[in-house]
Structure formats: C-alpha cells, structure tokens
Simulated assay, not measured.
Amino acid sequence: MADAADRLADVKANIAEAARRAQRKADDITLIAVSKTHGADTIRPLIAAGQHHFGENRVQEAAAKWPALRAEAGGITLHLIGQLQSNKAEEAVELFDAIHSVDRPSLVQALAKACAKLGRQPQLFVQVNIGDEEQKGGCAVADLPALLAEAAEAGLTIEGLMAIPPADVEPAPYFALLDELAERNGLPLRSMGMSGDYESAVMLGATHVRVGTALFGTRP
C-alpha cells in the first residue's frame, strides 16, 4: 500500500514540476493509471491512495475486473486506450467513460450506432498514427480531417487526439505535432505520454498522460 502511494506521489510531483516549467496548471492534466494485465489486488492500493482514472487495453479484460472494483470504490473513470474492434463498440460504450482509440470510419459508424442505442457517449479521442508506422493503429495524419468530419456527421463529439510516438526515438517532435494537429482542428484534449516520457508530453501540451510501469512497477 505504501509503495503504491509513494509511486503515485512521485508521478504527481513530476507532472506538477513539468507543468510549472511549461507555465501550466497541474490540475489541467489527467493522470491515467494503465492497469492492463494487473489484477484487482494490485489496483486496489492505487485506488486507496486516491487514484481515480484507469486505462485498459482490452474490453474483455476490463469487463472481467472493473464492475466489481467499481462496486467497491466510487468515482472511478475508466479509459479504453487500446485498439477497439468494431464488433466490441457497444460493449465499450457501455463500460468505458473515455475511448482513446477512434481511428477509422467503420469504428466511427459502430460507435455512433452504439451511442444512439445506449443513450450515452463516452469522451472520444481520435488516435493518430503520428509516426506513420505500418504496425500501429491510428488514423494517418492526412486522413484526420475527413475522419473528424465523418464523426461529426455521425453525431459523435470528438474532444481530443491520442498518439503513441515511435519507440526508441526522441518523442518531443511527435508530441509537438499532435498538439499542433489538435490546435488546428479545434480540439481541446491531447492524450500523449507514457511512463518514460510523460514529463516531456506535459511540457508540450498533454492533457492526459497514460502511465503504467511508473505506478505499478514492471508488468507481470
């Protein structure tokens, strides 16, 4: 329990310092604890330490563990940060408060249908393939305006952009590009930055950082 509280305090202090250096308010940055692959016993100490936002990669895994955890602790906000199959759109809309991986027209249509059916819409981010990597999900930079237009036409409100920069390169230029794309398209939110680079992301405009290892330790 103490370890979880200490790690959380350290990450929050780092966010606050990065925000201060960028002349931003730390309160404007949402820390998402990436709890994928971690069981309830590992998650509970972070909830007890005051963490409320959690991120999962898979709908099935989240559905297996979060309903019970949410029954124990109120005020949890659940973020889907992994790729979403169109056939899981309805389950995702039902379970998650935010979806960070909207990336293609077929998913826009599936989400619009699910939101209309369930009468709720999670906060939505378009994932941008910021490094133009073949193996990664995300909408191509050139296709972003068309996808945003399609989402608007389908009745979805997109509030921000999400990106994962290429591994093993300096992430700052990619964060700056995502910030510029969000600004250009009038979107207030930027989901960017992970355990190794969240401070840089905060300095370059991140509103949501997705931190796993720095909060939970090395993955099982």
Rank of each mutant, 00 (worst) to 15 (best):
L46W: 00
G137V: 11
A48T: 11
A142V: 12
R21C: 09
A149N: 13
I76C: 04
G155W: 08
A112F: 00
L69H: 00
I158N: 10
K12L: 14
P165T: 09
V102R: 09
S106G: 00
L181Y: 07
E17M: 12
Y174S: 03
A49L: 08
L189F: 06
A112C: 06
Q123I: 08
N57E: 03
V126W: 06
P166I: 12
D168P: 02
L178Q: 12
L148M: 02
D168K: 13
A98E: 08
A89M: 09
F125A: 02
R219Y: 09
G217C: 08
G205E: 09
I15G: 03
E91M: 00
D132P: 06
R120K: 15
L215H: 01
L95F: 09
E56S: 07
Q51F: 02
A73L: 00
I29L: 09
Q127K: 15
P105D: 10
L189C: 12
A146M: 04
A22W: 01
A2W: 03
R184V: 08
I32T: 07
Q60S: 02
A163W: 06
V211C: 01
I99D: 04
A62I: 01
A146V: 00
A92P: 04
A110Y: 04
Q83C: 00
L178V: 15
P122G: 11
G212P: 10
V34Y: 02
A142R: 15
I99L: 10
R104W: 04
L124V: 08
E17L: 13
T207E: 12
E170G: 08
N185F: 09
A114C: 05
P45V: 05
A116V: 10
M194D: 10
F96W: 00
E199G: 05
D3S: 14
A182T: 10
L156R: 12
D3N: 09
T42P: 01
V128K: 14
F216D: 05
R7S: 11
L181A: 11
E180G: 14
Q109A: 08
A201R: 13
V209M: 05
I32M: 11
G75L: 02
L84V: 01
L124F: 03
A167G: 01
A142Y: 07
M203Y: 02
Y174N: 08
V202F: 06
G212E: 04
A152C: 07
G74P: 11
I15L: 09
D97A: 05
A98S: 13
H38Q: 12
Q121H: 06
P188W: 07
E180M: 11
L161Q: 11
A40Y: 02
R7C: 10
S101Y: 03
E159V: 03
L178A: 11
L189W: 05
